[in-house]
Design a protein around this nucleic acid. Sequence first.
RNA 1: GGCCCCAUCGUCUAGGGGUUAGGACGGGUGGUUCUCAGCCAUCAAGCAGGGGUUCGAAUCCCCUUGGGGCUACCA
Length: 472
Amino acid sequence: MRLRFAPSPTGYLHIGNARTALFNYLLAKKHQGRFILRIEDTDIARSKKEFEAGIIEDLRWLGLNWDEGPDKGGDFGPYRQSERLKTYQEFAEKLLKENKAYHCYCTKEELDQRNKELLARKESPRYDNRCRNLSDEQKKKYLEEGRKPVIRFKIPEKTIEVNDLIRGKVSFDTKLMGDFIIMKSDGKPAFNFAVVVDDILMRITTVIRGEDHLSNTPRHIMLFEALNSKIPEFAHMAMTMGPDGSRLSKRHGATSIREYRKLGMLPEALFNYLALLGWGSKKDQEIFTKEELIKEFSLERCKEGAAIFDPEKLTWMNGLYIRKKKPQELAKLSIPYLEEKGLREKEDYLIKVIALERERIKKLSEIPDLIEYFLVEKIKFSPEALLLSKKPEVKEILTSLKQELENLSDFSAASLEKIIREWTKNNGLKTKDVFHPLRVAITGRTIGPGLFETMEVLGKEKVIQRLMEVLC
RNA sequence: GGCCCCAUCGUCUAGGGGUUAGGACGGGUGGUUCUCAGCCAUCAAGCAGGGGUUCGAAUCCCCUUGGGGCUACCA
């Protein structure tokens, strides 16, 4: 079994495309097949090398490792369309010779004009196949006019049945289609042609792609037939939508893997979440390891309807995966985010801090704000915290508590808890009337991890220091 | 416009002739606790509409509606 993911390097890896790549990957791995990466860069104007590199990086980051691709080669390369231009020409030549394709001299302007007229008459805008049987004389005349021909495929009249692995049989009547372009006037292959040639040459057996290609599939099938090649199996998965139900796009906010990666999503969370978009297990299970997904995945269980990408559920799942990570791992992952905010800290201290805050982290990008008060010399007070710290009765409590703490030599959480609870009781106070002000004084905020653990990690010196600052 | 695909809580989904229509996210409430988070418990929320078929339809068929796609010298 050979499957491929074939992105165009015209931008960063889109969530929807990543999902397509993921499904291809899962099926390939499930059947011990090959997962192949192919770069469709025939659109020179929009394709950029940096996007190709970006897509490769993000696919790797997500954990979708391919067996053959432009970066690692393989027996059926090249894996970049721009490197097979000659091949497309040869295949087109062959179709021309066999009278299955022909040159068309109509200009873009003429075509547009005719389509407009057809539309005005409420007819289907499509090519009228007028160049199918041009005389040599006419061809010569057109050439003399300086027209650069395209090559069109001569569509046979028939009904094409696509046996889709997700949707079942879908049939198309080719009478409704005009002869389509396989080679553009600049000598580059049109998408519908390049895909077929590539899939033939790369021995692709199964094509999993977006539903937007379903309507193109009859064209592909005709081409496979014209080129006497085995037709691969097709599976068209429903599109990924934004919250308003339209195709997920930039106006919905972050749409690329790169953006979510920068936000601090873990690859395993994204992997798991994306697998659940349009596919579901028969069990009530939602959290899967990569291996479980490979084992469980099947096209039969793929949904036919479109799925709306839900960043909130992704975030929840990300929090879950974060809580499963070891503090030292998280500490390492947090470093770029801390540095971005100009924060830097010794590893062992950072690990302790992160261990305390771990269950509050939903995205790595939240870490700096969450732990800042552990790292900086001068803490910021939230408005609410500031108000509380100014209260006379609070100052009174903190003043005498400070003395108590100054005399304390064992600053462990257990010891602190024992002493402070006793002190509270002895002074006839309620725990929350002591704990809360204390937290506010030493952290500048009203929320956070356990008070005594926080104090232990901060250390006696910082705790006393911060109490002094509040009291003066 | 023509052709094609799709339709279970707000969202992701399970269920494919007989179910109190199940779970998850998000939301509400309560518990745990020094706060938050987490965890636990609990509640609200759905078969798009209309016709068939059938003893019986979320489930099968048709229509309508709604959404999406293709119809490019984009991919």
